[in-house]
Amino acid sequence: MDLVLFGPPGAGKGTQAQFLVESYKIPQISTGDMLRAAVKAGTPLGVKAQEIMAQGGLVSDDIVLGIVAERIVQDDCCAGFVLDGFPRTIPQADALDLILKQAGRAIDHVISLEVDTEEIVKRLSGRRSCPSCGKGYHITFDAPKEEGVCDICGSSLVQRADDQEDTVRNRLLVYEQQTAPLKEYYRSKHVLCSIPGMGAIAEIQQRIINALVS
C-alpha cells in the first residue's frame, strides 16, 4: 500500500505514521530521511545533494525526485511505504505520479489529518521543555508540579521559539497554503482520505483503518 501522509504541525502525524508502519509493515520515508540515506550511501544523487547542502544551497526538485525514485525500489518498500513531507507542490505530485507509474505503482491513499487551528495552537504553544535535562511538559496536558520549574532537576522551563503562538499560527498558514492545492489534486484522483484528527489516538487510528479499507 503506497501512502502519502499530510498533517499540520501538532496534528499527531508522527504518532499516526508510526501506527501505519507497525500495522502495515511498511517503512515511513521522508525527504530528510531519504537525503541523509543517499548521502550516507554515497549514491551519485547523494553526492550531488551533499555538495549543494555543504554550500548552504537548497536541493532541487530534480535531485529530491531522483532520490525518491531510488528509495521506493529498495527491498523494504516492496509492500508499500508511507511518504511523509513529500510532495509539497503540484509539480512534485505530478513528477511523483510519473515515477511510480514507471515502477508499475501508484499512490493508493493520501491521508490528510484535519485538526482545528485553535486546537493546534493550544497543543503547540503550551509546550515547555527543560534546557538542562530535556524533560518535556505541557502547561495544560502535562504540567509540572510547580509552574515553570522542572520536576526532575529544578531548572526553569523554556518555550521553543517555533512554539510561540504567533509563530505557530504562521506555520499553520504556510502549511494550509502549501497543502490546499495538493488536497484538491488528490481529491480529483479519488485517493484523498480526510481524517478528523481530534479525539483519542485509538479513535483516530480506527478512522484511518476504516478509510483505508473502504
Rank of each mutant, 00 (worst) to 15 (best):
T117Q: 09
M1D: 08
I29L: 14
S112W: 07
H138C: 11
D2K: 06
A103N: 05
Q159C: 11
I29Y: 11
E114G: 02
E114V: 11
C130R: 08
E165S: 11
R128L: 15
R171Q: 04
A93C: 05
A54V: 07
L124Q: 09
G136S: 14
C150V: 03
R169I: 11
A38Q: 05
I201S: 12
I67D: 04
T43L: 01
L212Y: 13
M53H: 10
V73D: 01
E147L: 10
G148L: 09
Q178A: 14
A37T: 10
L58C: 07
Q55E: 15
L173I: 12
Q177R: 14
T117S: 08
E147C: 00
I26K: 08
L65G: 02
S60M: 01
I139H: 08
L212M: 15
D142W: 02
I72K: 00
A49C: 03
E22W: 13
G57V: 02
D97K: 09
A17H: 06
P8T: 05
A37C: 04
A49E: 03
P27S: 02
C153E: 03
G80V: 05
R71L: 04
L113H: 00
G42Q: 03
L173M: 14
K48H: 01
L35W: 05
S30Y: 13
S194R: 12
H109G: 00
L96M: 13
I29G: 07
S112Y: 11
C77L: 00
S23A: 15
V191H: 05
A37G: 06
V82M: 09
T15A: 04
T140Y: 12
V21L: 08
V168A: 13
V110G: 04
L157S: 08
D84M: 11
G199W: 06
I204N: 06
S132M: 07
L173Y: 12
V21D: 06
R171W: 06
Q164W: 13
G7V: 04
R36D: 10
K40M: 01
S156V: 15
G56T: 06
A200M: 07
G80I: 04
A69N: 05
E147H: 10
I120K: 00
Q16S: 11
T140V: 13
V213S: 15
G197I: 03
A69H: 01
C193V: 01
G154E: 00
F141T: 12
